[in-house]
Amino acid sequence: MSEEIAKVKVTIDGITVEVEPGTSILNAARQIGGDIVPPAMCYYSKLEGSGGKCRTCLVKVSKGSEKDPRPMPKLVASCRTTVMDGMEVENITSPEVIEARKGIVEMLLINHPLDCPVCDQAGECDLQNLAYEHGAEKTRYEFERRTFDRIDIGDKVQLHMNRCILCYRCTYVADQITDNRVHGILGRGDASEISTYIEKAIDNDFSGNVIDVCPVGALTDKTFRFKNRVWFTKPVDAHRNCPTCSGKVTLWYKGEEVLRVTARKDQFGEVEEFICNTCRYDTKKTNDWIIEGPTHIDHTSVISSNHYEMAKPLPVIQKDQLLIEANKVEFDRATKI
């Protein structure tokens, strides 16, 4: 007897894919990849229970399944809707979806301070990218935006509640990665805010990951704050033998100096593996790391605006013959032009 589970067929924007039963529409779309992947501001595959909140991933189900072909009456959150065999989904081919998504982006922005020029996240901000793609150039909102005081969450993280889009990701990190729950949501509606229950510092080894999961600049690394714009820094993959985490990180260089350390992100902006606070905050010397090579940056990102991957390899790498060997592929690519 074969142990294969029957796969289910789903068609998204006319492209058919076979996936495991129980897969969400969003993850099925990610298996196809490309433009038809709905944007996800709150769903995070590594955080159980996340998703369903931001509504940017809304899609139209024009055929429920082979058995029950009726379309679903409303747009559904693709991150929390499981595929059925024979389901047909419209994302970018549906004007209704595009219109609704535009609406969601507008809603996300009405209380956002739009302070990108002074925000550390600018350049790698999911909200910025989303607004660039789906937003209107002008807001119709003419009222005062909600404001909060900045709060320090421990000595390394700062919470800028004004920028928060209440995706709840950081609270899930606090809940699931760290073992003590000290992070939560206070208040209701547009007055709700992320809280550590009255500024109680999170001193868990993995607390720094809230910075990486935050899609906007609400949670930023205080050791990096205002040091540089991300598009002036050069990301390099590196690892070290870390007793606490996988030790696989991205180092962000300016010249020969490591300005910050983050977890590695995949093409959907999610970290590959969570890293510990020691790697993130306390190991910022090149000697601490084994360099693997330049991080692949999507061509649409502003970080690659100066054709970063095509440019000369980093000085740190150039200096060391061993590293030059190890990074032959990158060197070849770089020297082709």
């Binding site: 509504r55 809603m107 009222f143 209440l166 209701r188 547009d190 007055a191």
Partner: peptide, 18 residues
Amino acid sequence: YHHESCGQCSPCREGTGW
């Protein structure tokens, strides 16, 4: 409704206040 929105999802949280 603005006062009573739970604040989880963006259209309701932001739209009711607007």
